[in-house]
Design a protein around this nucleic acid. Structure first.
Lengths: 199, 199
DNA sequence: TGTACATCAGTGAACGCGCGTTCACTGATGTAC
DNA sequence: TGTACATCAGTGAACGCGCGTTCACTGATGTAC
């Protein structure tokens, strides 16, 4: 009863996606080699044909998440004409992404990444820095164009932008999704938009 | 070579404190029964004279953290005369607490609590809810007195208050303390104060 | 095109480690008469 | 106050479980001549 034989490139993608799905459905504590293999109908040992170890799988999942964050920023900018509209669009996309794929916050706030091996943690750090940097660019654009106040640094405002959502995502995760993230995001955007308006 | 024999009440406090210190120094991944016992010069099995199991120790640590949060709110209100001054004082105290006791964010954002047993997670949820509730009370006070805008709910503003710090604390944790939380908190308070000023 | 060989992606069994937990036991502390 | 007994807080050894990982092996896929 052998599983179909597929290319490593394909399996790597499957494994990373299976890991993310697993975290979404069962929580980060259930992220294990055997569980991932089960999901794909593979023997546990088969995983090691495609990844050196667990850390590298977590790394691949982070790459997956990073790609979606980057795509969100790009699409938000492409679909809008002003920096403010881009930020609002990004906020909406971010909420939708996190809501429809709860594995993302679950993994990011689990010890798996936060307290994980130095390599994984550094990768996560770079992921967040990258995201913040892209947001800061959009904000800096707005500052140059005069639609966003310039007396506060773009990087600082970018951190605040993330601050709109983060507590909401955590609260929602804690009470099992009862907390209404979308509603909070709408309110949060309103306040943020006022806050960053030119003086 | 037996350790001194102390009352359970004393040992319980020691154990909870040792657990928190351990997380502060080594990270949440290192939080284990053997490690806690070592710190107190006890045999691992002695811990079970005072706690039924690990979950209850984590619960006791959460109680410790909760007590400090509550104390911060009370002292902030007592030391000031206006709701706005109270919030600013609380923010400063919160930063100082988290900075001087890095076990708090490390534990709270570790899978230990976030993905832990339902009981622990619910306790954490109540801790945050309680903190938010107390902050919301202060804000509501300000709204009644006219020093804080009333067109946004006190609960919503309380979540935003936490949002000032949370991303900063996480960033600082990720890059090993290089990110300057205090500086961000000052900037954040300035923006928050403008945001919640009456229209 | 056919044959010989290397590589690659699968299998299941087993290992080793660390963790939370249990157990029988000991001697100090507290209590009853 | 002294004695007998119960309780309590300590010990070290061992258990059991689950996890990440390794290994020898198999048969399919790809390649060289």
């Amino acid at each position: 009863v052998a599983a179909p034989r597929l290319k490593t490139a394909v399996r790597r993608e499957q494994i990373a996606q299976a890991a993310l799905d697993l975290v979404a459905e069962q929580g980060a504590a259930e992220l294990g080699m055997a569980r991932i293999a089960d999901r794909l109908g593979l023997a546990t040992s088969a995983i090691y044909r495609h990844f050196p170890g667990k850390d590298e799988i977590v790394g691949a999942v982070l790459d997956l998440i990073d790609a979606r964050f980057v795509a969100n920023v790009k699409e938000s900018c492409r679909a809008t004409t002003s920096p403010m509209a881009c930020l609002e669009s990004l906020l909406r996309r971010h909420v939708a992404l996190v809501k429809s794929n709860s594995g993302i916050p679950r993994l990011l706030f689990s010890g798996e990444v936060f307290c994980g091996s130095p390599g994984v943690r550094e990768q996560f750090s770079r992921l967040i820095s990258g995201y913040l940097g892209r947001i800061a660019e959009v904000i800096a654009d707005g500052q140059r164009g005069g639609s966003i106040r310039s007396d506060v640094g773009a990087a600082t405002l970018a951190v605040h932008f993330l601050g709109i959502l983060q507590p909401a995502v955590i609260l929602s995760h804690l009470d099992g999704g009862r907390f209404d993230v979308e509603r909070h995001a709408v309110q949060g955007w309103k306040l943020f938009a006022e806050t960053i308006a030119p003086r």
